[in-house]
C-alpha cells in the first residue's frame, strides 16, 4: 500500500527533516492554511446570550488583549497543523501533534470564564499525558524499523511496524487532538471567538486525518 494519499508530487529533503506533498497531504495543508488565514483576518463575533425569562439579550465582547493573544495562539495552532500535515517524519509528526495540543489549550485558556478555564485545564492534562504514547510510538517506530521517514516506510523494504506502535500513535493523537472527542463535556466550544475556537476543532480533525494515513504506511 504505497500510494495511499496519492503519489508524492514533491519531496523536500532538508537533512533528515523531510517534507512531502502528496494529493492528500496537500489538500489537508491547504485547508489548514485557509482556516489560518480566516483566523488572521476575521474579528471575533459577539456572542448573543438570551436572558432567561424575558426578551432581553446581551452580547459578549472580547477585549482587544484577549483577542490578540488568542489570535496568536490560533495562528500558532494553524502553523503546527500545517507542519503536521506535510511532514514526512514520524517523530516530527508527533512533535507537531504535541504542539497542536498546547496551542489548543492556549486558544481557550485566555477566556476569562471559570468553566472554560477548567475545561481547558482538564483537556490540557489529557493532552500532556498523551505525549507519552505519542513519543513512545515514535521511538518504537525507530526501534523496530530503524527509520522514521515515511517515504522509507512506504517503500515496504523495511521490517513491518509493530501494531503496538501504530496503536500507541493513534491513542496519542486521540489524546492530543481531543477537542472534538471532548466536545460532549467541554465548555471549550462555548467560548466566544469563533475564528479561534474553530482552529481547535479543525487542527484536531486534521491531525486525525493525517494519522489515518500515517498508520496505514509501513
Amino acid at each position: 500500500m504505497g500510494s495511499l494519499g496519492g503519489i508524492p508530487l514533491y519531496v523536500l529533503e532538508f537533512g533528515d527533516e523531510l517534507v512531502y506533498f502528496s494529493p492528500y497531504t496537500i489538500t489537508l495543508f491547504l485547508l489548514a492554511l485557509t482556516f489560518t488565514l480566516l483566523a488572521i483576518v476575521s474579528r471575533p463575533e459577539r456572542q448573543v446570550d438570551v436572558a432567561f425569562g424575558g426578551d432581553a439579550y446581551t452580547t459578549k465582547i472580547i477585549s482587544v488583549d484577549e483577542m490578540r493573544f488568542r489570535r496568536f495562539m490560533a495562528i500558532a495552532c494553524g502553523l503546527a497543523s500545517m507542519g503536521a500535515m506535510v511532514t514526512g517524519d514520524v517523530f516530527n509528526f508527533t512533535l507537531f501533534t504535541a504542539m497542536v495540543g498546547i496551542t489548543n489549550v492556549g486558544i481557550v485558556a485566555a477566556v476569562k470564564s471559570p468553566h472554560v478555564q477548567d475545561a481547558a485545564y482538564q483537556y490540557g492534562l489529557v493532552a500532556l499525558s498523551a505525549t507519552v504514547p505519542l513519543f513512545g510510538a515514535a521511538a518504537l517506530y525507530a526501534a523496530a524499523t530503524g527509520s522514521l521517514s515515511m517515504i522509507e516506510l512506504a517503500k515496504g523494504t523495511l521490517p513491518a511496524v509493530p501494531l503496538v506502535a501504530k496503536a500507541l500513535l493513534v491513542i496519542g493523537v486521540v489524546g492530543e487532538g481531543m477537542a472534538p472527542f471532548y466536545a460532549a463535556k467541554a465548555e471549550m466550544f462555548r467560548a466566544p471567538g469563533a475564528p479561534y475556537v474553530i482552529m481547535c476543532s479543525l487542527s484536531s480533525l486534521l491531525i486525525f486525518l493525517r494519522v489515518a494515513e500515517v498508520v496505514m504506511i509501513g
Binding site: L95, M99, Q117, D118, A120, L128, T131
Partner: peptide, 17 residues
C-alpha cells in the same frame, strides 16, 4: 522541550484558574 512547554502552560492556567 514540548513536555516542559505544556507543563508551564498548564501551571499558568492552574494559577489563573
Amino acid at each position: 522541550t514540548v513536555g516542559i512547554a505544556e507543563l508551564l502552560a498548564l501551571s499558568q492556567i492552574y494559577v489563573t484558574k
